[in-house]
């Protein structure tokens, strides 16, 4: 399955975003090629206006709950209202890996 496309489709359907960009950043991390595990999402949606950052992220995390419980290990999120996007249309780069996915505790979910 193309996870990037799957994430994009779900967010498109649920948030009707004015702008949406989903990047597969798995290659930046300590995972096998083609893992489709680390993603960066930039999403601009009218409904975010007046909503706290925590609640915006919760909304996206809920839409992608199934993916986050499965193969999606990390989701960098940049959630903007349309007004914020017009004022500052750039998002920071995601960080490099520090190897942690290799040392998961023995009993994760």
């Amino acid at each position: 399955m193309d996870m990037r496309q799957n994430i994009a489709d779900k967010l498109q359907a649920q948030l009707a975003p004015a702008y949406l960009n989903v990047e597969d950043e798995s290659h930046m991390h300590n995972v096998p090629p083609g893992a489709q595990s680390h993603f960066k999402v930039t999403v601009v949606a009218a409904e975010f206006s007046g909503q706290s950052l925590v609640n915006r992220h919760r909304r996206v995390n809920r839409i992608l709950a199934e993916e986050l419980a499965g193969q999606v290990h990390a989701l960098a999120l940049h959630t903007l209202s349309e007004e914020e996007w017009q004022a500052k249309p750039d998002v920071p780069d995601s960080p490099p890996c520090r190897g942690g996915s290799k040392v998961q505790p023995k009993s994760p979910t």
Binding site: S94, R98, G100
Partner: peptide, 15 residues
């Protein structure tokens, strides 16, 4: 976080 502030084991935790 994953790791410690001195020895972070994940880029997101580190930042």
């Amino acid at each position: 976080m994953k790791g410690t502030p001195q020895m972070p084991q994940c880029g997101f935790s580190s930042r």
